[in-house]
Design a protein around this nucleic acid. Sequence first.
DNA 1: ATGAAAGCGCTAACAT
DNA 2: ATGTTAGCGCTTTCAT
Lengths: 356, 356
Amino acid sequence: MARRRQSVTIKHVAADAGVSLQTVSRVINDEPNVRPAMKERVQASIDKLGYTPSIAAQRMSGSRSYLIMALNDRERTIADWRERRGTDWVDQMLLGGMLTCAEHGYRMIVELIDTHSDHVERELSAALMALQPDGVVLTPPHSENALITGLLADRGIPFARIGSIAPGPGFALTMGDTKNALDATRRLIELGHKRIGMIAGPDAYSLSGWRIEGWRQALGEAGLPHEGLCAAGDFGFESGNEAARALLTQDDPPTAIVASSDQMALATLDVARELGLSVPRDLSVISFDNTPIVRFTDPPLTAVDQPIAETISRAVELIIRARRDAAPDAVIDVEGSVVERGSTAPAPHLTGVKRA
Amino acid sequence: MARRRQSVTIKHVAADAGVSLQTVSRVINDEPNVRPAMKERVQASIDKLGYTPSIAAQRMSGSRSYLIMALNDRERTIADWRERRGTDWVDQMLLGGMLTCAEHGYRMIVELIDTHSDHVERELSAALMALQPDGVVLTPPHSENALITGLLADRGIPFARIGSIAPGPGFALTMGDTKNALDATRRLIELGHKRIGMIAGPDAYSLSGWRIEGWRQALGEAGLPHEGLCAAGDFGFESGNEAARALLTQDDPPTAIVASSDQMALATLDVARELGLSVPRDLSVISFDNTPIVRFTDPPLTAVDQPIAETISRAVELIIRARRDAAPDAVIDVEGSVVERGSTAPAPHLTGVKRA
DNA sequence: ATGAAAGCGCTAACAT
DNA sequence: ATGTTAGCGCTTTCAT
């Protein structure tokens, strides 16, 4: 391959404007100590030649790489893509991440890392050495992986933890999990439900716990019971099936269920159908995620919308500003909302009658 | 900001192994003229220190950047994300692209470019200068934009054109559009349909034409008419609504429709419902895309599955091999398939009776 | 088969 | 306010 060189470099601009490289550099980076007239002249040359600095060269000189790495769980992400489950997490991440990066001249680059692997550190370290990103966005469950956060902290790389509130290095951001679960449960209580079940996510994710907390809090406020009404899944369809079955086939089953993922809610719909329960007449369901498919289920699912794009956008801004500003101590909580659709309705009148 | 340096560099490895930088470089790049024993010794140091070369430095020295840029239409992509329509094109692109890139030590980086903008060239040029990718994957409609292909050809950057068969620079790949439309239409003919409509995509996409061609060819084989049975949309829901209405409210309307996108098929379902037509009893529908939502529509849509991941994967391989191998002259056509679901059924008996 | 020297495009540090 | 120098980590010459 022919040795490919940059077509227009800082040298060309400097020559064209009749100034030193350094002055051009100062203009590019909007640094002080350049007279307006000079700045204008250099900018004119830049525009004329259509010059854009090479991020590789910028990085080499000890400056920024203008790259932000978004780390996702390899196994889960690939499975979602392969199965075409309609999870649009990555899309929403790119929506918030890429656009905000672009506003600041940065790029977002998606990287997949194994969670369970014993060589997480090697994988991550290799990615960091290869790319030299200026920051990293950690999504669950990586955001709570001490090996990962520790390594980033050691290397002094700014990073954001989505779905983590633990103190320590890195910006912590959450998507209103507790309040979302609280709101969803309250809504069901308003509809007259007295026994409201919860299909929780796996323990490995803190947000699973937060949602349980919100659910319990709402029940507590209303003096309603929670005992025996919480079953845990792993966010996947199969686990949701089992959890829903466990909840709905017990004595005095719930008339409403909050599921911690769309897939588990989908499974709940199936189980209900199988048990001869009509949704929402006999059973109300609210899910978390609000992925595109929930508008097309039968009935369409009332769902908690997670502000993924907004949250990643905030994370990126924090990372980019990290050089200047001090880290905010507090956890940043971006609010979600409940989108009401057809899977929720007033509690059935015959509450308390065993149906299974 | 502290001037952040690479933690482990080629120098460290060279020192550890007691050899010159050059020898280490040769080992990294698997070059000849290194004795096995030497190679082993160096590799041991690399493993011990957990060394991975910086792609910025590799690029700077005139070698590869190990970056492949995937170019998508900015406006459409962002709209799909914002509306959360369930289009998983980008996901499938990443599935095929990222994984294949990773196999070869490359990274895929997604970039959005305006199609209609008059400064496409400036935008693209800036991205190329900043990132210096070793190759570019062009998706429709960029793959048929002469400004873009011309610029890449001029710069000598290997690129792939997805959904383009035009001769000229760059690897051309298609996803079996003609055959897919042919198969879908043939399937409807097998089911006894005599009047089969087509809701085509916009002219700006060549693949719209290829699909029309396949549809027409199948009709021709069976001696069936096509006149007045083709309406064009822009792939979006609204346009599908109009097109479906035009087809279904005419005299002697079709009993089956092939829609060039899921969104337009969704609209067709709505129009059918509105007109009192039951799908698939009165009307069969086959769509293109097979996005996740089509499993949840009422009824679930029979759809043409586009091998996006596989196609992008092939494109990436071609680009990476471009340095060694000669460009294949022929268009590479990756086959799709029809996934049968609930929106197709035998033609209604009362064919020919006006219903609208 | 190995090593030494030069340079990629850019910026930090140090002049002036 | 501007210019000069040195060097980032690596690969390409060019020696040996």
